[in-house]
Design a protein around this nucleic acid. Sequence first.
DNA 1: AAAAGTGGTAACCTAAAAGTGACTAATGGA
DNA 2: TCCATTAGTCACTTTTAGGTTACCACTTTT
Lengths: 111, 111
Amino acid sequence: MENKLDHADCPVTATIALFGGRWKLIILYVLSKNTRRFGEIQVRLPSISKKVLTEQLRELEADGLISRKQYKELPPRVEYALTDFGKSLCPLLIDIAAWQRKNIDNLIKVR
Amino acid sequence: MENKLDHADCPVTATIALFGGRWKLIILYVLSKNTRRFGEIQVRLPSISKKVLTEQLRELEADGLISRKQYKELPPRVEYALTDFGKSLCPLLIDIAAWQRKNIDNLIKVR
DNA sequence: AAAAGTGGTAACCTAAAAGTGACTAATGGA
DNA sequence: TCCATTAGTCACTTTTAGGTTACCACTTTT
């Protein structure tokens, strides 16, 4: 019989973990247009709190998708940008969006 | 200035909602190989409970990705299979897995 | 002297997702 | 008579993600 399976070592699950969750995709989207300061990201997300934004940025950074550059100024200035690895994700996201457009008619309305 | 953004109407978010979560991907994977009975799916997933498996199957069915066929027998027999819509997802999942293989070296080990 | 500006942290709370263990219906077989 | 079988349901607890509010550091501006 086939081996037993677990989501933990599913490559697709691992990939989606990079950009899944409530905010990561739009953060990546914002940064795909421009390098941005913390506050600039925040105003583009209608309702995210500082704590959550910080968390998401830290995780994206830990996964190597974005970079964080802190200037020695006061008041503080920190700039976030996509890394090359982060940029490599964009075509994949475009593929996913393309599938959605092609299959939107089959999509059942939201539960 | 650009409009404010929200994940709610992101097409990629909507797509991922179909197969995101802890178990849906491997369930789809199992069914991509064969039509399976409830119990057959369960033994292939090492640690899923009946309750959670039932929930996931119901959601996949509600989203039109799988079909459920119940036979009038006792003990009961129920067979799950990918729908055509479910099958249309497979190439996308293969794309995602391909991206992962190509970029696996950049992937930081699990947090 | 006080307030504004920036990028956070700390303590706490909440809702949703996931998990657990016991229970069920109806039949065939020992 | 009683047990096994299958695909669940029910009530409950735990875990996780996300959210709220208050506070801080240090300098410049008012």
